[in-house]
Nucleic acid binder design. Structure first.
Lengths: 133, 133
DNA sequence: CGGTATCCTCCTCGATACTG
DNA sequence: CAGTATCGAGGAGGATACCG
């Protein structure tokens, strides 16, 4: 954990016009979601998944949210949905190049969370202590 | 946009035990939120902000959500809240080292969104077209 | 200025049932 | 297997009013 150069790349983003900002924020809002992040992680690991496999891997998700989240991902061009005309039906989901790019971006957040969850736990405990006093 | 080596670091995360997974997911769920990301971005740029300044910068946020989000950030040890005992009251918010780490992690997502928002817009248009047919 | 407290409204999300 | 449809509870979040 280097203590110097805390100015990181965020500051180097050129000031974009407000219209683009709105779009970017909307995308962040859509994409920065628990199920979205989880599904992208699963699809990154497995490369290719059937609906039922995603339902199994993505523990706790309801069928409704799974369908809904996958549709949003498909709509945004982050995953492809391939239907095989067989009985019983078979549908495969796979990340696109765009989706893989997002996966990489998310990776940093996952790594941060894994590296710091204990620090956060401690911070919460401290905060709870102070509240009691 | 290199097309090779799509195996990125996400795959190198060692299989953590389920208990840690739950914690990490909970943190992601708390932190992957529009206002949280926006506030962290603002605090990264400005270094130090008063409540009212954050309210101004964080366009569209209600006072309730601002307070609520700031409290969550403070609780998780991501920002510090400094109260100056003066009239009128003055309260300053500042990122901690932990918060700066998250800011760096988020940076990748912002950059991805800025780099790809047009691609996503196009994907949405294509998707809408297909639905009509 | 920097909040809290209260009320009220969506709208997300889960549960359940049904279909190609 | 992979969905869609419908209903209903609960929480997120805005508006307003008040406080130290």
């Amino acid at each position: 954990m280097a203590e110097g150069s805390l100015q990181h790349e965020l500051n180097s983003i050129p000031p974009t016009d407000p219209a683009v900002d709105k779009l970017v924020e909307e995308i962040i809002g859509r994409v920065a979601d628990k199920w979205t992040m989880l599904l992208i992680e699963i699809l990154t690991e497995k490369k290719c998944c059937r609906f039922s496999e995603l339902a199994r891997e993505c523990e706790g998700i309801s069928q409704k949210m799974l369908t809904q989240t996958l549709r949003a991902l498909e709509r945004d061009g982050l995953v492809t949905r391939t239907v095989y005309p067989v009985v019983p039906p078979k549908v495969e989901y796979r990340l696109t190049e765009l989706g893989l790019g997002l996966s990489k971006a998310f990776c940093g957040v996952w790594l941060w969370a894994e590296a710091n969850f204990d620090t956060i736990e401690k911070a919460r405990a401290d905060y709870a202590c102070k509240q009691e006093g």
